[in-house]
């Protein structure tokens, strides 16, 4: 089926999080599931990578040492307005989540989350972006 085909296509994802341990294991697991993950260990790094490469989806942490996730989100949205960004954060503040959504984030997930749930969201985001 078309949908299955779509599901199996490699999606390129940029993961931005300053938790190196988390990013490593997450990218490994995603890659194993046909999602090509690129890691950025800080907000600045994430923006730099995005300048050079195209991604289908960005997964972004909100609380990073160098930059606030919301700021990163704003910059990324300026660079690629239709880029879907999924917020994945350990900071459970709904205010921050709401602000993220207001700034154009695609969805919101809190850590720790089920891998399947994250993958579903990534796929949704990607599907949403692709013109039908």
């Amino acid at each position: 089926m078309d949908q299955n085909k779509d599901k199996n296509r490699t999606i390129s994802v940029l993961l931005v999080d300053d938790e190196k341990g988390y990013l490593n294991v997450l990218s490994n697991r995603l890659s194993k599931r046909s999602i090509h993950a690129t890691k950025a260990f800080s907000g600045t790094q994430g923006i730099q990578i995005l300048r050079k490469h195209d991604f289908d989806v960005v997964v972004l942490d909100l609380k990073m040492e160098d930059m606030d996730g919301i700021e990163v989100l704003k910059i990324m949205k300026k660079m690629v307005p239709d880029l879907p960004v999924i917020i994945l954060t350990g900071h459970g503040s709904q205010t921050a989540a709401r602000e993220g959504m207001a700034q154009g984030a695609f969805d919101y997930l809190s850590k720790p989350c089920e891998l399947q749930e994250l993958m579903d969201k990534i796929r949704d985001a990607h599907k949403n972006r692709e013109p039908l």
Binding site: Y22, V25, H91, G92, S110, K111, L115
Partner: peptide
């Protein structure tokens, strides 16, 4: 909560 969430997330993912 925030401090715990990150290590727990890593543990679960690992």
């Amino acid at each position: 909560a925030h401090e715990i969430n990150n290590p727990v997330a890593i543990m679960v993912e690992e």
